[in-house]
Structures are given as structure tokens and as C-alpha cells.
Write a protein that binds this DNA or RNA. Structure first.
Lengths: 200, 200
DNA sequence: CATACTTTCTGAGTTGACTCGTAATTGAGC
DNA sequence: GCTCAATTACGAGTCAACTCAGAAAGTATG
């Protein structure tokens, strides 16, 4: 028997299944053409639902992108945390966390930048947006953790520094100056900036 | 005789005058109602020009906001630079530069945040956008200058740190978490972050 | 001043995100 | 199974940013 036995009638199942179809449709279309080139109509059509229905599952097109990208972000964060564990040096460990996030964000540059735009300027009350913000918080916590392992950094500073690192990462990925840059270029730039923050 | 005698016929004068009318109209409407509540039609009407004409002077509504806010930013930056001059302490001096910028950005929170959104995610090729990016560069340079006055910071680090400070400032002003915060709250948060970067 | 040519202006038209009144579907009580 | 209330789906309609083909205004030349 399952512990949670909430409403699992046909209604709920239909809803879940529809959400799945929408997510899959959006993911494929966004990946192939980029968010800007895909209309919400196309997503609805591919998911085989009405155009209005789409907006019951994601209040805006931006929310739809957050929905799609959040799941890859989860994996990236997990991967980074694991990689950081083995690295004794604080800078190396921080970069190990950052790398998969940047890689995941840059699979398609426009989508990645739009994701960041929505993350910062979208409606923070929306569910997919809350998820995205939670991921950002988790990323900062992961960074704070590895910084805290360094004896020269006390716990309070670790949290503050993690927030700064997060800001550096954001600007590195979002900045128009970096649109043409490769993942490695961006990581190098981030590393240079993070290095000057850390005690030497 | 003037050194530069470029086309100063009626055509050029008309154009300048129209740009003035557009800027004034947009500034007033945006200030009173917020960018989101103002339509480009309203701006065009108030400036007494056709709706299509507006887009010859600012390619998008976002560009229009950049146009309007850039001029206040110029003043804020000037004010901050002057205030920083007298302050011997690096942290104090940096904050003196930042304060007027944040104040100017927060006169109307939504407009300020939208300005930042356009700055990062708008088309960097557009003229008003280039101006805005130039102001960001100047701000970083001003910060790098005052950091460079500190003997413990060499020139290269100063530039890198200035970029980091710029990122902190951006996130502080743009973050949805801070929408309800006062200017002083934000400045305090920025200060806390900048402090941990500086040599102690 | 007439003519040809260039630049600027214009607003009806297009586009696409999002809304909203109505219809269909589901589940509860009988 | 039937009735009713609540939830979910739908797509024609709305709205506002932005485009574009043709009109108007300015300038140069004989």
C-alpha cells in the first residue's frame, strides 16, 4: 500500500498525463528551434490540447520554459555536488559544482539565457518559478558547504560568498557580452573572479 | 564658425526635436504609471507622432525605457564618483559610488527592474542599449579606480573585483526577493557582500 | 520654380501571447 | 443508472507590440 493515497482518480491521472505531454512537446520544440521561434499554439498542437489549456499548466510561455529546464538543472546540480565531494581545494570544488550548471544552461544559448531572464524577472509566485528559485537556493547551499570546508572561511562568510558566486555565475551566463563564448571560456572567466574572492 | 558643420538642415532639426518630444513623453508616462501600464500608442500620442514613427527612434519599448533612464544614470554615476573621491576607505568609497545608482534605479521599482532586464537581455546592437552598456562599464571603471587606491589590491584584481561588485549590485537590484526592500536594505546587503571580498 | 531623388512619417495590418464565457468531463450522493 | 456540482478543457476573441507599403516632407540640381 502507498503511504500517500490522495485523490488518484481519473481526473488526477488525466491531469498528470496532460502535463507530461505538454512538457515533452515543449522540450522537443524548444530544443529544436529555440523558445523564441516556437509559438504556444505549436506546443499546444504537439501536445494535442487546446490553446487555452496550455495556460492552465503554465501561466506564461516563460513558465513553460522554466518547467522544461528545471528537470535538467536538477540533474546538473546533483552531478556537480557529487564531483565536488572528492576535491579538497575550495576553488576546484566550487568550480566542479558550477561546471555542470553552466553546461546544462548552454546546451542552447538562447534558451539558457531566457531561462535566466524568467528566473529573475518572472512571477515568483508561479509554481515552476518557485521550483527554479529553490534550485538556485540549493546551488548556493552546495557552494556554501564546500566553502565551509575551508578552515579559513567561517560559516557566515561562506553563505555570503556563495551568494556572490551565484551572482557571478548568473552574469557570466546571462551577459550579452558572453553570448558567443564557449562554456569553457565562461568557466574560465567565472574561475578568475571566484579566485580573487577566496582567501589566499 | 563651428568646427563640425554636418547636416544641420531642417531635416536634422526636426529629427532632434521629435526625439526630444518622445523622450519627454515617455519619461512622464513611465514615471507616473510604470512602463508596463503604458502602451507605445500612448507615448506616440503624447509625443504627437504616428505609432510607427516611435519605432524609428527606439526599436522596441525596452529601448525606449533605456533611452529615458540612461540620462538619470549618467547623473547618478557622476554624483557617486564625486562622493567617493573624499573617502579614504575602499569599502566606503565603493558604496558611495553604488548608492546613487541604486537610488536612481529604485525611484520606481518596476521601471528600475525592467531597465536591468533590458540591459542584460535586450539587443546590444541598438544605440540606447550601447549607451547603457557603456554606463555599466564606466561604473565598473569608477569602482576599479577606488579599489586601486588601496595598496593591498593590485590593478588587475581591482578590475576583476569591480566586475564582481557590479554583479552583486545587479542581483541586488533585480532579484525578485528584493522587490519589497528599501534602498537602504539593498545597500546594506550589497555592503555585506562587498566587505567579504575586500582584504581584511 | 520645377524636377527628381532621398529621407522621414504614417496608421492600417499582422502576429502571437494570453483571456474568458461556454462546453465537456468527472465524481458524489441517491 | 441519474442528477447535480465542481473541475477541467476549449478556442474564438482581445490586446498591444511591432511591420511595411505608400504618402509626405525635405534637399539638390538645372
Amino acid at each position: 500500500m502507498t503511504v500517500t493515497t490522495p485523490p488518484v482518480g481519473r481526473r488526477e491521472r488525466n491531469k498528470q498525463e496532460k502535463l507530461q505531454r505538454i512538457t515533452a512537446a515543449a522540450r522537443e520544440l524548444f530544443a529544436e528551434h529555440g523558445v523564441d521561434e516556437v509559438t504556444t499554439q505549436q506546443v499546444a498542437e504537439k501536445a494535442d490540447i487546446g490553446t487555452g489549456t496550455l495556460f492552465l499548466y503554465a501561466k506564461t510561455k516563460g513558465e513553460l520554459l522554466l518547467l522544461v529546464q528545471n528537470s535538467s538543472y536538477v540533474d546538473a546540480l546533483q552531478e556537480g555536488r557529487a564531483a565536488a565531494e572528492r576535491l579538497p581545494d575550495a576553488l576546484d570544488a566550487v568550480m566542479a559544482i558550477i561546471r555542470p550548471v553552466v553546461e546544462c544552461n548552454r546546451i542552447q544559448v538562447d534558451n539558457g539565457r531566457t531561462y535566466l531572464r524568467e528566473l529573475v524577472f518572472g512571477d515568483p509566485e508561479e509554481p515552476h518559478h518557485r521550483d527554479a528559485l529553490a534550485l538556485t537556493v540549493q546551488t548556493e547551499e552546495a557552494i556554501a558547504d564546500v566553502l565551509g570546508r575551508d578552515d579559513r572561511i567561517d560559516a557566515r562568510d561562506a553563505a555570503t560568498l556563495a551568494h556572490v558566486v551565484s551572482a557571478i555565475m548568473f552574469v557570466g551566463m546571462a551577459s550579452p557580452v558572453n553570448v558567443a563564448r564557449t562554456v569553457d571560456d565562461i568557466l574560465q572567466e567565472v574561475r578568475d573572479q571566484v579566485r580573487v574572492l577566496l582567501p589566499r
